[in-house]
Amino acid sequence: MSSDHKSVKGPYHNFDINLLDCEFLGRGNNGIVYLLPDGNVIKICFEHKSFEREYAILEAVNGNKYFPRLYEVGGNYMIRECVPGESLSHYIAKNGLDEELSLKIIELLKEFISLNFTKIDIRCKDIFVQPNGILKVIDPKKFYTKERSFPRHLSKGLYKLGVLDTFLQALKDNEPKFYKSWYPEIDKYIKETYES
């Protein structure tokens, strides 16, 4: 992939963006995010390699309902759709996990498979539950560069929230093929991590 990102040029490339006019939304390991006056967000990235990986994922899935739309990319920034709502972790801590939400998470994981991701996993903090109940991935990481055939980080997060059994029951009842494949790995991981 070229470093100039010529494949994504949006309406911003002829304008200066003054971050003093933008609302600070947060800072993570890989970058800092501001809300632009028009309602989109700009992420300024610290580390080129992780930036390239995130860009590659968002470009490949641009327009997919589970990911924020990518509008423009420059040397160390990307402008993309703002995802309102709250992280899955915070949402479950306040509201619990029911079968309906479990099924939405399962559908998200199935989408990962249909997108040919090699990592079928995500952290709870990287899934946002929007006000309309739709899930979106806010910080895609290593979906094409890491091999993981079951949702390990997701299971760990659900276990810590005390709702892993609810998720697994929904998986067993609605997607027995995935349950049969994933449950032994999840069970082994949880036992090794928390019960040994």
Rank of each mutant, 00 (worst) to 15 (best):
L35T: 00
L36E: 03
P37D: 08
V41P: 07
K43M: 09
I44S: 13
C45Y: 14
F46P: 07
H48D: 04
K49C: 00
K49G: 00
S50C: 06
E52H: 05
E54S: 09
Y55D: 03
A56E: 03
E59W: 15
A60G: 00
V61Q: 03
N62G: 06
N62C: 12
N64M: 07
N64Y: 15
K65T: 04
F67Y: 15
E72F: 02
V73N: 04
G74P: 00
G75E: 05
M78L: 11
M78W: 00
I79N: 08
P84T: 02
P84N: 07
G85K: 08
G85V: 02
S87H: 03
S87T: 01
S87E: 02
L88Q: 09
S89F: 12
H90L: 07
H90C: 01
I92C: 06
A93M: 09
N95W: 14
E99C: 05
E100D: 12
S102I: 11
K104F: 07
L108W: 06
K110E: 04
E111L: 13
I113Q: 14
S114V: 10
T118N: 10
K119Q: 10
D121G: 11
I122P: 12
C124Q: 12
K125F: 02
K125W: 01
D126T: 03
F128D: 00
F128Q: 01
V129L: 12
P131M: 08
P131K: 11
N132F: 05
G133Q: 04
K136M: 05
D139W: 07
K141Y: 07
E147V: 15
R152I: 04
H153S: 14
S155E: 10
S155V: 10
G157H: 08
Y159F: 15
Y159D: 02
K160W: 13
K160D: 15
V163W: 13
L164P: 09
T166E: 11
T166H: 08
F167Y: 15
F167M: 10
